[in-house]
Design a binder for these strands. Structure first.
Lengths: 158, 158
DNA sequence: GTCGCTGCAAAGTCTTTGCAGAGAG
DNA sequence: CTCTCTGCAAAGACTTTGCAGCGAC
């Protein structure tokens, strides 16, 4: 099993991400704006699991001079999701969160006390998922798995 | 692996479900009302994956004489969820759906074309989930897994 | 009878959209 | 220059809440 740390090492650098984004925009006759840049940047320079509002606040804090509306955050997240650059996660009552999807596939372990999200991958589970889809005659396009519980820190607090 | 059909056989009968619900209400000095009955009934007599609005419509159709407001549906679903009688699922853009949680644990395979939901359980995956939680020092309380793709019927249509 | 429950409508959230001006290419 | 993007505010979708009357116990 691999965990979050490994992913950090594998995460493609910001430069690559940015040029991919720029190429994509050019390809579709869309424009590369300062707002789109800071949104991508915000997603990159965070733990990667943000609600639209959290992202909006982060941008306001880091780029106070640039006026960026929440509508633009929503629109850009939608754009990024349409092009598979980000993935949206909906964990129960925590609302919809977004993460950069350029990373390798992984699953999530969510602490119900503090909301911390740890990423992991288990090859065995991945294999079985494909197997199950095949058995049910399903053409699998995607999958997600979440484990809910209490993280080590929160257990110690109690 | 087991699938939906097996679950139908394991599903506890409505009578048991109902008496559990009644006992629970009595226990907390809550009242057993006609509205609460038809809501539980609606959840039971369906494929078990309903949005609050779908449930509301179903009730309107099956019990046209009984006035049941959507607010009551929301309130009752909340009540049932608080007492672990139903589970809410949020699958991407499909919105929040509810299912009776008295059934055995299972995971979901969702067709992104027609929205059909098939349930399944894989013991191997269940085992590995516990293992992973242990390795990460996580006290697991719950987990969910979704496989997205195209179901057999929708593949044939194309 | 009491006290919780209900429908209704109003109020909250969260997200999307219309528009006129700003700005990238 | 053109045509997309943006902020703003208004509109939408979904969910929750306050209230006065209703109904379970």
């Amino acid at each position: 099993m691999r965990t979050q740390t490994d992913f950090a090492e594998r995460t493609i650098e910001y430069e690559k991400l940015l040029s991919y984004f720029k190429a994509l925009l050019k390809n579709e006759n869309l424009k590369y704006t300062k707002q789109r840049e800071v949104i991508l940047d915000g997603l990159y320079n965070s733990d990667g699991h943000l609600t639209p509002e959290e992202l909006y606040n982060l941008i306001q804090k880091n780029h106070p001079t640039l006026k960026t509306g929440i509508a633009t955050v929503y629109r850009t997240l939608q754009l990024l999701e349409d092009h598979n650059m980000v993935t949206s996660l909906s964990f129960g009552s925590q609302g919809k969160k977004y993460e950069l999807g350029a990373k390798e596939h992984h699953d999530h372990m969510i602490c119900t006390e503090c909301g911390e999200i740890t990423e992991f991958v288990d090859e065995e589970i991945e294999k079985r998922q494909h197997l199950i889809a095949d058995e049910l005659g399903f053409k699998m396009s995607n999958h997600s798995m979440q484990i809910y519980g209490t993280c080590r820190q929160c257990q110690e607090k109690q």
